[in-house]
């Protein structure tokens, strides 16, 4: 999924719209901005009380609700800023180093 999305956002000059215009709404979705993250948030679903503060505070709306009602980061867009971990009232989120 990630690879397919990337290809739509990064295109050659011959395929750019006139004047680099954007012709469809929501195109930033196709641009994966989570590629340079150094740390990744890991949620402990046992501690999570499903308050949703991480989702509200996330500058990229990358914390998304799972079917179980807890939250997980969408790593296509999470930049690892750590705001979610800082704000979580239950200390349910920890930052883990991204390695390889």
């Amino acid at each position: 999924m990630a690879e397919k999305v990337e290809k739509r956002a990064i295109i050659g000059w011959r395929n750019l719209a006139l004047g680099c215009a954007i012709l469809e709404p929501g195109s930033s979705m196709h641009l994966l901005t989570g590629t340079w993250r150094l740390q990744r948030p890991v949620v402990d679903p046992e501690k999570c009380n499903q308050c949703g503060l991480c989702h509200i505070y996330c500058p990229d709306l990358a914390m998304t609700k799972t079917a179980a009602g807890t939250y997980e980061p969408d790593l296509n867009y999470c930049k690892g800023c750590g705001i979610c971990a800082e704000e979580c009232p239950k200390d349910a989120i920890t930052l883990v180093e991204e390695k390889e």
Binding site: A9, I11, G12, W13, L16, G19, C20, A21, L23
Partner: peptide, 20 residues
């Protein structure tokens, strides 16, 4: 028919925009 003109040209697209 809404479109966006003059968006940010991220490093991945700026060179291509200039080339156009």
């Amino acid at each position: 028919h809404p479109i966006t003109m003059g968006p940010v040209g991220i490093p991945e697209v700026y060179t291509e925009a200039k080339k156009q």
